[in-house]
Write a protein that binds this DNA or RNA. Structure first.
Lengths: 337, 337
DNA sequence: TTGTATGCGTTATCAA
DNA sequence: TTGATAACGCATACAA
């Protein structure tokens, strides 16, 4: 806990001015090799660590970048973090993550923290449209921000998200391609926009392939328990052969459905083929491996960080962009035995 | 992207000095209600956000606290983050998380970043003793640090970790209590200290209960695939009744073992009762729910943050502390059918 | 190529 | 209770 050396200490020990030390730190080319060596030696002798606060204050810009995430337990967001971190590192920026737990109050708290630290920008991971609206006011158009996961009007902000409509479309086409003709859709809360988009993709594929949308089950949540009850609702139709395929709007729902149906004597994928959504690690040990839609989490993080860095570089001339990335289908045993 | 208002702007608009504005920000009691109202109004009119960099520079202390984690995909570390965050929030500190991916180079990078930001302290989550040694030099005793997950000599640093020996002891006693007499231990790389401790706890319980330690299987890693091959190795003994219980050093190993044994016609828990370790979410969908040892992740995070804040407050009078928290047993179907 | 001086936005000390 | 002013550590014109 010795006192920290400052740039002045380094300058004194090296026998140069503070300006020169600053130059070896930021513009090594502007300084003669001999003095550079002298200064470098002093820096090491004193174990000097530049003060980022002073630097940010004087330079008016920072290398700190933030990422606010709603759910670290969701491997999708962890992927986003990986991608964002990689892109930040390439650009010489430092990424720090804050965990909001999906609570508006914490999102505000951390947004404010990054703002007060004068971070160069922040990636905002939200699950709920309303939160974006609420935060819009409190970030008052000064801190460059990119919305990840939620697509927002480009008049308001950059955003990067996955094409949920297309993902569900892919999943449904997959079933159609396997000859399934009578499908059910197991939704989640249609209040969540991503879920609505998935339902829309399902509908489009059903129409395009001229197959039958037998019924929709709309559980209260997206957990395995919700899937379990949805599966019980569907058991009769399944046994009677009135449906032969299911698209579930999340993997957890799919797992629950599978368990309920197997309990009811339905063979998977023999009688019923089923597709989930998210490629959630939490389902990797399901008795029947679930075919699913993989969100491009890492790509989302990467692209979002690039957009953010661009916005930072552009300054006031910046025009917001919206990127929507395509998910991919991961085929497993729940559709092809 | 309008220019940000500074404390000077606020002072001018309110018709007071910057010192007074600073007082309403930090010592509201020292200022007359009337002027407080005036200043508050000015702050809101200008949408003023204090500059944390300037504050840290002038005050010589910060409210920023860091947490470096090796694996966001591991629910244990996510729990640690939750606990640390809660304790930080209670103390009015802000927690920012950096993801090192277990790579020393990144651990160094982020440690340096927190140091340069003059964070008040950092929680260092490591998996490998060698990394701690390597980092010890580069953090040079200035930035208050608490090691989470890895217990280190209290001469070097505070640390908070789980009692791995006791956890495995609990697991083994559980089997003994169920009447199991002939146990096998499925280890992992004994190069990792936590694994060695788990093996030691197993041994102690075996001796205490005077039951038999039939054999140890020592796979190369801790993945499910490693468990699978371990299970195959054990299949003959299991079928022949030469063993009736297994303690695995991780849940993933346990899942693999279960799958291999079931494949070989062994009934679980009828023929073999098996306990895992970690309460890993990734195994929640195992065909047989795995009895496991739950690490007190959230408590570790909480305690670690409290120790850190104490160290910060203590200053140079600080003496490092070592906390070792007790895990708990979570009983599931793999031991009690 | 290097040194000097000024300012970045705050806090804290000391007078008033 | 408030105001003036000197740090805090650094970057950056500008001068030499």
């Amino acid at each position: 806990m010795q006192a920290r050396a400052s740039i002045t200490d380094v300058a004194r020990l090296a026998g140069v001015s503070t300006g020169t030390v600053s130059n070896v730190l930021n513009h090594a080319d502007r300084v003669r090799p001999a003095t550079l060596a002298k200064v470098t030696r002093a820096i090491e002798a004193l174990d000097y660590q530049p003060n980022a606060n002073a630097r940010t204050l004087a330079a008016g810009s920072s290398r700190l970048t933030g990422l606010i995430l709603p759910d670290l337990g969701n491997s999708f967001f962890v992927d986003v973090a990986r991608g964002a971190e990689a892109a930040a590192e390439e650009a010489g920026h430092v990424l720090m993550i804050a965990h909001s737990d999906g609570r508006l109050e914490r999102e505000q708290r951390y947004l404010k923290a990054f703002d007060e630290e004068r971070a160069s920008g922040v990636l905002l991971g939200l699950n709920d449209d309303d939160h974006f609206t609420a935060l819009l006011g409190s970030l008052g158009r000064r801190l460059p921000t990119v919305s990840v996961n939620l697509s927002v009007p480009s008049a308001l902000s950059c955003s990067v998200s996955a094409d949920n409509e297309h993902g569900a479309y892919l999943a449904t086409c997959h079933l159609a391609g396997l000859g399934r003709q009578r499908l059910a859709f197991v939704g989640g809360p249609l209040g969540l926009r991503p879920i609505r988009h998935r339902a829309a993709g399902f509908d489009r594929a059903v129409k395009e392939h001229a197959i039958e949308h037998v019924r929709t089950v709309d559980p209260a949540g997206v957990s395995r328990a919700d899937g379990w009850s949805a599966g019980q609702e569907l058991a009769d139709d399944a046994r009677a052969g009135r449906i032969d395929g299911i698209v579930a709007s999340t993997d957890l729902l799919a797992v629950g459905v599978v368990q309920a149906l197997q309990m009811a004597g339905v063979a998977i994928p023999g009688d019923i083929a089923i597709v989930g959504y998210d490629n959630n690690q939490a389902t990797w040990n399901s008795p029947v491996a679930i075919t699913t839609v993989q969100q491009p989490g890492e790509a989302i993080g990467r692209v979002a960080m690039r957009l953010l860095l661009k916005e930072i570089a552009d300054g006031s001339t910046h025009a917001h962009e919206t990127a929507i990335l395509e998910p991919t289908l991961v085929v497993r045993a729940s559709t092809v035995g």
